[in-house]
Nucleic acid binder design. Sequence first.
RNA 1: GGCGAGGUGCCGGAGUGGUCGAACGGGGCGGUCUCGAAAAUCGCUGUGGGUCUUUGUGGCUCACCGGGGGUUCGAAUCCCUCCCUCGCCGCCA
Length: 413
Amino acid sequence: MLDIELIRKDPERAKRALSKKDPSLEDLIEQILELDKDRRALVSQSQELRAKRNSLSKIASNDLSAREQVLALKSELEKLESELSKLEPRLRKLLLSVPNVPASSVPYGKSEEDNLELRRYKEPPRFDFEPKPHWEIGVSLGIFDFERASKVSGSRFVYLTGLGARLERALINFMLDLNIQKGYKEVLPPHLVKPEILEGTGQLPKFEEELYSCERDNLYLIPTAEVPLTALYMDETLDEKDLPIALTAYTPCYRREAGSYGKDIRGLIRQHQFSKVEIVKITTPETSYEELENITKDAESILQALEIPYRVVALSTGDLGFSSAKTYDIELWLPSQGRYREVSSCSNCEDFQARRLRIKIKNHKTRFAHTLNGSALAVGRTLCAILENFQQKDGSVIIPKALQPYFGLERLS
RNA sequence: GGCGAGGUGCCGGAGUGGUCGAACGGGGCGGUCUCGAAAAUCGCUGUGGGUCUUUGUGGCUCACCGGGGGUUCGAAUCCCUCCCUCGCCGCCA
């Protein structure tokens, strides 16, 4: 959530910044300004009445006429208050649907076409045979079972079996251990959260269709561990000397993938449920951009340890997520697709989420924290990359050295 | 799921209709004392909003004692409802 104070003070600047993300947002700002004006007028009026009422009440114990005056004030007040109670949720909802403003260092652009490649690690491998897509490798190795998954749960689900399940588990442990070594505190968070939490991190109110909900209990399945990790310190004021707070968690992620019907229908790339190891940092405004570089490097170091080719791109203004002020995506190489695919997204949300979640920090003065999050890493896609990049002519797959202690075998065959 | 107890400021804990933004204690911050520290002692110490502004760690004002609603001239205090925490019983990985 943006600070309404800033919108009020310099609406044109807010519009200019937001229209880099989405030009249609200018109207939204206009509406917000309008409602905010109305709201303040109503608040002032009702406050005046209340002040009058309070002073009359003080003498009312032995003054019957004061009592009558108060009754008159009361009906006026009720009118104002009912107007306010209609207006305030509307204003709030509008404000909650305004995305974060891009940082000035974010490259301008309309879509992912305009993302800026920053660096690459390792050449894509060359094969002296036709490399297979991961789903073919996995099925023939007997470690993926898509058919039975669709019988049981429908499309975009998979059973990992035998060494497939073990490989996934090895990756999770490997990633968590690396993160822990770097100072992240391991957390195992709840996988079901309240709507207000998703509102806090920015998934709601705009992206309801993306979420699985348990209506009876008014809870949602998390689409990423970012949600419960970032919300861990909701409604708290943290001491600045305890910053940065660095958290890591493995969780499954649940996404409905509405609106991506045709995309990535085969394989593990786009599933309704996937494993991810996430990192989150809570910092001061002064250090958050430095920390964005840090979490990106931390995520990259996992791919380096696994020897998987990747590149890092800076998202353009038009491709930035709702809550993010600046994002680096890490994309790994998939030989069967001949292109890079996202495996991590590292974002600085500045105080956008902290304001929604009321996470404050304090040394002399109190202010909102900055929050960052990054995947380190998406496990399923990493698993795909291992199968595809390290596949052999005979259909076996070499396991990267660093992972072997976790997996227990040098080769998958 | 059933019954019982309870939710008050940074913490503990009073307060059962007006003078309560809230006693008292602890903590924190500042002063005195001290070579210094401790002890003692004095003072200060919530958040959010509106408005004014000679923009000052400013004035005035409103709201907030788990959330929402109600009674009343007036609610932390009474009533309804929801949520949460703790205890016991039941069920259960």
